[in-house]
Design a protein around this nucleic acid. Sequence first.
DNA 1: GAGTGGTCTAGACCACGAA
DNA 2: TCGTGGTCTAGACCACTCC
Lengths: 253, 253
Amino acid sequence: MIDRYSGVPAYRQVADDIRAKINAGEYGPGDQLPSERDLVDAYGVSRPTIRDAIGLLRTDGVVIAEHGKGVFVRSAPPVIRLAMSRLSRTEREANRGAFLGDAATGGFTPTSAVRIYFEPADVRVADLLGVDPGTEVCVRDRVMSANDVPVQLSMSRLPRTLTAGTAIEQENAGSGGSYARLEEAGHRLAYFTETVGARMPTPAEASTLQLTAGTPVVTVTRIAFTTTDTPVEVNDIVMAADRFALVYKIPAD
Amino acid sequence: MIDRYSGVPAYRQVADDIRAKINAGEYGPGDQLPSERDLVDAYGVSRPTIRDAIGLLRTDGVVIAEHGKGVFVRSAPPVIRLAMSRLSRTEREANRGAFLGDAATGGFTPTSAVRIYFEPADVRVADLLGVDPGTEVCVRDRVMSANDVPVQLSMSRLPRTLTAGTAIEQENAGSGGSYARLEEAGHRLAYFTETVGARMPTPAEASTLQLTAGTPVVTVTRIAFTTTDTPVEVNDIVMAADRFALVYKIPAD
DNA sequence: GAGTGGTCTAGACCACGAA
DNA sequence: TCGTGGTCTAGACCACTCC
């Protein structure tokens, strides 16, 4: 099964062969692969080599290993599509904050845990908010869950001059969320910018989002602007890449 | 240095320790880590264990190993920010296709290699384009490079009924790109949707994009719609996540 | 208890890069 | 030539899952 003289490392050949079998449907989603010991016999290499091969497939997100049970072909969870409309005033007036809007669109039961605290703005946040570094900001640090599975982290920061005395500084910001409170306080929102990227999760993110190896995170930095083009909130969002897709609509003019 | 009785695997403790030193600035971006043999002595574990630790940091994109040279702390390449305006008619009329518009925004020298071919639409593409499966589509399969480094893959498909006899079926679609040709042919574009996600690259993608381990790809599926809400193009774009960020503007109403 | 993956060792040899 | 990472072996013992 393994060509010793091809120049391609044995563990790569094994990984490629298993990957090919998965693509060919020989192993379907959820199927169990042969045990590592069986693969040792099948390919005629040592167990560490087999483990290197499986390690490759794991970091690529192709398979998942379960201790004591076996290695299984990964089946993709349903993707939740997040539309831009989740940020619309209509949604807010229907009592939904952004994440609850997501839930309505995505069809899952949302829960969220919030931690509120205050801190001086660091250079990046100050720059994005157009304030001086050190200005006190209100931080709403949230873990959002869909059907009790944590799927999104959100760290929202607003200058405290805007939040003092409002429900934004409460754990429950009230119906329509912080954006609704901002508008009530006279800061009418005009638009948001979202800067989207992706990277591998930090260990902390991997653990709270219960990410399996080989799952990147999508990062969104959302900035809310008022009708006077003043930034009033910067929100750093991290979500599991295998569970979300973001949909944007762009005018052609 | 290693606590044998903590329950935390040795290779994890080593990885965490090195990661902490990087975060603390003890090793800065571009710095070389001690050699694996030195780390063996420093931590008192075997080389495979050290290699497991470094493997973790590699798949997390924290360090890069260079054969024969050493292991280095990764320094993030400058991120190219892609704004929505790259799809505007103004950009097209300034002779720029979407990728050339990206280049103007991102400040890099763009080149691109195109392969044109025709094939029947598969179920997904047919569905997105609103045509019957099997309908012949024109495929523009491109590898885009910035300063001669491949950074983006783009697979654009249009129903051949729209492209027959136009420069879209030529390797060089002409100034303003395929979108300009479509509008000249009377298919005035109204808007695009972009569906953004992320995942680990396939081996083929990792090799053509020259991705180091631990770099995910950002995927964008762009669909172009005409003023009659007819989809005319579906474009699957794959880009290195460490080199791009996508910026979208969302109205608040 | 039997089978699974998880961790770890102490070596060996190879391929690459730089001096 | 020497130091670097890359690959590979043949074991060992542990932790988890299921019967």
